[in-house]
């Protein structure tokens, strides 16, 4: 694992994979949207409004997945001092926050026609809103603490503590009476939706995942370059003194 954590090797490998990942992302989005908007049939109860799930579910899934990535990367950075782990966690946070915001907005847009309201202080909705604030807090730690080593340590603690909320999000629909429907995809007895609806949903989740991987590589590359820029600036500054 350590040999892949070498920034120079990461830059080389990611440059090799990036065109393929970008192409695959575009392909999955094209296929996913075609299935979601044209092939998936109308729902007998919700009509076409249910098509919001093809944006809402992947966004909500990526919001939680992104936080999982941050927690694991932070723990690895904290324990084994991997040079790339903290950068991966830091690079993931803005994407996770954006996916959480998207899940909240599309959830509200689905809630209005289905429940008659844009927002309710329901356990699932509230825990997702808390996740959004945890993301903002995590980003703020990196932005406000100048010493990067200290920022990484504090951010790692925030990330691991915030993981409790992700578990609450997952089980909120089972632990409390909520307006939000229970899980219909990741269940012990299998998904409760099928056919073209399931295919469209899986394709869109795949597309969001590939998008996340592609952007994560760009963002980590950017953070590695910034580290190099900082050290060059110090070199030039030191040389001029």
């Amino acid at each position: 694992m350590h040999k892949f954590a070498n920034p120079a090797r990461f830059m080389r490998l990611s440059n090799m994979f990036l065109p393929w990942c970008t192409g695959f992302t575009v392909l999955l989005f094209a296929l996913g949207l075609y299935y979601a908007l044209f092939l998936a049939p109308e729902d007998y109860q919700m009509g076409n409004t249910y098509r919001i799930i093809f944006i809402h579910v992947p966004a909500a899934y990526m919001a939680q997945f992104g936080y999982g990535v941050i927690a694991v990367a932070s723990a690895v950075g904290f324990i084994w001092k991997h040079p790339l782990a903290d950068q991966a966690a830091r690079a993931t946070a803005p994407m996770g926050a954006a996916f959480t915001a998207l899940a909240l907005v599309t959830g509200s847009l689905w809630g209005k026609p289905m429940w008659g309201t844009f927002w309710i202080w329901d356990a699932r909705l509230t825990s997702m809103l808390i996740l959004f604030f945890v993301y903002l807090g995590y980003i703020a730690v990196w932005q406000t603490i100048e010493d990067q080593t200290r920022a990484a340590k504090i951010a790692a603690i925030v990330a691991v503590v915030g993981l409790v909320n992700v578990i609450i999000i997952k089980f909120s629909v089972d632990w409390w009476n909520t307006l939000h429907q229970p899980a219909s995809l990741i269940r012990l007895d299998g998904p409760t939706i099928g056919g073209d609806m399931l295919a469209a949903l899986l394709l869109m989740i795949g597309a969001f995942n590939m998008f996340f991987i592609t952007l994560l590589m760009w963002r980590i590359q950017s953070l590695i370059l910034r580290k190099r820029i900082r050290s060059l600036r110090m070199q030039i500054g030191g040389g001029q003194d």
């Binding site: 076409n48 409004t49 944006i55 809402h56 994407m95 996916f99 599309t106 847009l109 952007l215």
Partner: peptide, 30 residues
């Protein structure tokens, strides 16, 4: 109800394109 469907897809496009453009521009700038 179509306004809610259209708004969701527009919000999705804004977030995804925004993220991609911001990440790409930051990398090019660096």
């Amino acid at each position: 109800n179509e306004i809610y469907i259209v708004s969701s897809y527009v919000a999705g496009a804004i977030v995804l394109i925004g993220l991609a453009v911001a990440s790409w521009r930051a990398k090019k700038q660096d």
